[in-house]
Amino acid sequence: MAGLAHALSSIRRADSLAGRSTLASTIDARAKLLASLWVVGVLASFPSYEVASLLPLALFPVVLLVTGEVPLGWLCGRLLLALPFVLMVGMLNPWLDPSPMASPWGAPIAAGWFSLASILLRGLIAVSSALLLLATTGIIRIGYAMSALGLPAVLVNQVLFLYRYLFVVGEELARTVQAWQLRRAGKPRHGVPPHQLKLLLAAVLARTFQRAMRIHQAMLARGFDGQLRLPSAPRWHLRDTVFLLFWIAFPLLARLVDIPLTLGRLLTGA
């Protein structure tokens, strides 16, 4: 229950961030969506031991964070929730992959430490990029961008529909589970017992069906004819082209040239 209530409040928070007028929010959602996908794709293409050469790609989430005026605390809180699985899968790497790699202080380091650091850095950059895309754009505009980029209207409408009724259905389920907890006089240690959960879910599901029927009636009353329509795409500006081209070129440059190593050689004369 706490998970559901917390999730709903997190969504409200992300919504309030996306609703503000900032430099990042003026960029077209299509440009931001494509740039985010490209950055994450290039990030995934680095060899598994790369750590330092991934660092330039951190510029993308940092730019979104700053130009979107997103609070760092919000991002860190979301990151802490999102990274445990990645950490769990990568944490054994130092023991599973002890192949020696060079270090500046002489003693070799197990290659697994590099791959673990690489996984964590990839996770940080990829997760931050997705979260900041949402926090600077909002789900509605992302939906319209998906539609403009050719994704099926049924899927886009479904995303927007789901989002619209998330709070209504979610809060109803949260209230139902809370009522069950209050009658039970104590929180369950390991979740709701299955035989009780099915009754709780069935009760809410039955009400969900009734709600769907009412929504359908309301849609018919407003002239719904079975055709799903989305608004036409907003105007594309020069700044969107510049943004997209920069974020295609920069990750490509970072992939082809080891920017930190080049900088380090320049600075140290090595």
């Binding site: 559901l4 529909f161 009724y165 259905v169 389920l173 369950p188 969900t208 769907a212 079975g226 799903l228």
Partner: peptide, 28 residues
């Protein structure tokens, strides 16, 4: 969807239901 326009509404609210239901843990 042309034949059964109710499906749109059902899909939307059931999506919201599954999203919310995934947040409720059950004991094993």
């Amino acid at each position: 969807l042309q034949e059964d326009s109710q499906l749109v509404a059902l899909m939307g609210v059931l999506g919201a239901f599954v999203f919310a239901a995934q947040m409720i843990n059950f004991s094993i």
